[in-house]
Design a protein around this nucleic acid. Structure first.
Lengths: 133, 133
DNA sequence: CTGTATCCCACGCGATACTG
DNA sequence: CAGTATCGCGTGGGATACAG
């Protein structure tokens, strides 16, 4: 197995223009759809069944929730436990890999929280400028 | 077409635990398109003109680059300087607000880098399982 | 309960062509 | 050089209906 103890230190520059494209794609694949963050966040709090998630995130449709869960599942950040009762129950929980995502996400979320007003002000200014034109 | 804010009834029950929906949206708005991260990364390195960016990120089309720059501009993380020469030159640079995005992004990128192999292994396992079925 | 299948719309994104 | 206009494609995503 490739350990990939990736240190980006100074080596990032050398020969490697690091068109970070690959990591970008991976990253976006966790996050680029509308509901991944909410689902991840919810599952970090507690393992949940499908309909529990729907209740926790009322705006999501079944289709989208299923798609989101499948993607996260495929990426190994969440895992379903199928309970073969009647009718079936499926309990989704975050994997160890998924847990490692929490800090990075929190950092980003903290940023968004910190700068929310800045962003909104910038937008208003931008939109006002357009109006003026 | 003024792509004005697509407001959503994100009626988060106040007092609830971080119904991060709003920050989510803000966050995704910086990052959810294909080229924002690359552009941000490039502009963190050096101020660049439009075509310099295109050269630095060869896969992006004019249209997408323009759209990405406009979005980032609107959010106040990049800023254009228009030099009224002949023909015009436009120098894009990252704003102070934009600079504060760097660390959070690096954290996320570091995560992606660290866990790339894990993710890929998870995907292969997932896809193999599908094949098996 | 937990999905899948279908229809349909919105939008990101590239390709191409054209303007100041 | 920087940017807009238009078209076409792929796909996210809601609504609905149906299935294991």
């Amino acid at each position: 197995m490739t350990g990939t103890s990736s240190d980006q230190a100074a080596s990032a520059k050398a020969g490697d223009e690091l068109r970070i494209d690959a990591p970008h794609r991976e990253l976006l694949d966790q996050v680029h759809d509308r509901w991944s963050l909410s689902v991840l966040n919810e599952l970090c709090e507690r393992p949940s069944r499908f309909n529990a998630l729907r209740r926790a995130i009322p705006q999501v449709s079944q289709k989208s929730l299923t798609a989101t869960l499948r993607r996260l599942e495929r990426n190994g950040v969440v895992e379903p436990e199928i309970v073969s009762t009647r009718p079936v129950a499926v309990i989704y929980r975050i994997t160890p890999l998924g847990k490692t995502l929490r800090d990075p996400i929190d950092v980003l979320l903290a940023w968004a929280d910190d700068h929310l007003s800045n962003i909104q002000r910038a937008r208003e200014a931008f939109d006002d400028a357009l109006d003026g034109v």
